[in-house]
Design a protein around this nucleic acid. Structure first.
Lengths: 137, 137
DNA sequence: TGTTTAATGCAACGTTGTTTCATTTGGCAA
DNA sequence: TTGCCAAATGAAACAACGTTGCATTAAACA
């Protein structure tokens, strides 16, 4: 069984509202990292501000995480299930296509263990691949 | 001998102007990745638009490169000497401090060779470390 | 059903970045 | 040195992005 939008909201103790359910559905459908703009485009109409707040809330509650892709825009992707309110566990690489601008999670590629330079304390690491994706080649 | 701002401009066939020299001096002094805002703060007064164009020109000519740090803002860092107008060679990791927000290049840490998933063509890879830097611990 | 609290929608505002055009300045040759 | 040309700068206007405060609406729960 695949998790539905309402399941996800329940799991994170979030109120079930129309906007939130729709946003989650968009993420579940597309399965790639989405920017604020991408999401807005999927709506017939939605309040920009509400969307900003929804994304912020989702991130704080561990539903989505920022997908660093080296592109211009900030994107978010659904967390894979191990994220919590307290810590995001986003230990896979992201691929950013220079052609279409899409960003996909590469769950299979784990970020190698790195050693921080002296005096530095590591809290996380991100690996971003750039190039041309399968559909753009 | 350390490269001066004017040397760098000459090496890249760029006109020696006051703004450009100052921007380069700021980069040479600070030796960390700087956002548009950081740079603007170092000036007594400078035209925002000119600064945007200066940074864009520098990037196109291989003087600076974008430093992906997973932070909110786009930052630039001086290229290490092997970048050209045609290709940036930015094969080292960046460290982003969550406390002070500074981003430094870790020249010593090279990005591991990764294998792209089937159908994907790789053009580059970025490795971003996050945590607390030496001065913030 | 009613109450409480969170989420939404709206207005206003601030920041960031781009485009267009007139002016100034650097580079180069006479 | 002088003058010309192309590039760089500065100013204005504009568009996109993002935040804050406040009134209204809707979800959760007794």
């Amino acid at each position: 069984m695949t998790a539905s939008a309402l399941d996800i909201l329940a799991q994170h103790n979030l109120r079930k509202t129309a906007v939130r359910a729709q946003v989650l559905d968009i993420f579940l459908d597309s399965r790639e990292a989405l920017s604020h703009n991408d999401i807005e485009a999927h709506f017939n109409q939605v309040d920009r501000i509400t969307l900003y707040r929804t994304l912020k809330t989702f991130e704080e509650k561990g539903v989505i995480h920022k997908a660093i892709d080296g592109g211009e825009k900030l994107k978010y992707a659904l967390c894979s299930g191990h994220c919590s309110e307290h810590a995001h566990e986003d230990h896979h690489a992201h691929f950013h296509c220079d052609q279409c601008g899409k960003t996909v999670c590469i769950e299979s590629m784990h970020i190698p263990a790195v050693q921080a330079p002296a005096g530095y304390q590591l809290s996380g690491a991100y690996l971003v691949l750039k190039g041309t994706c399968a559909t753009c080649t």
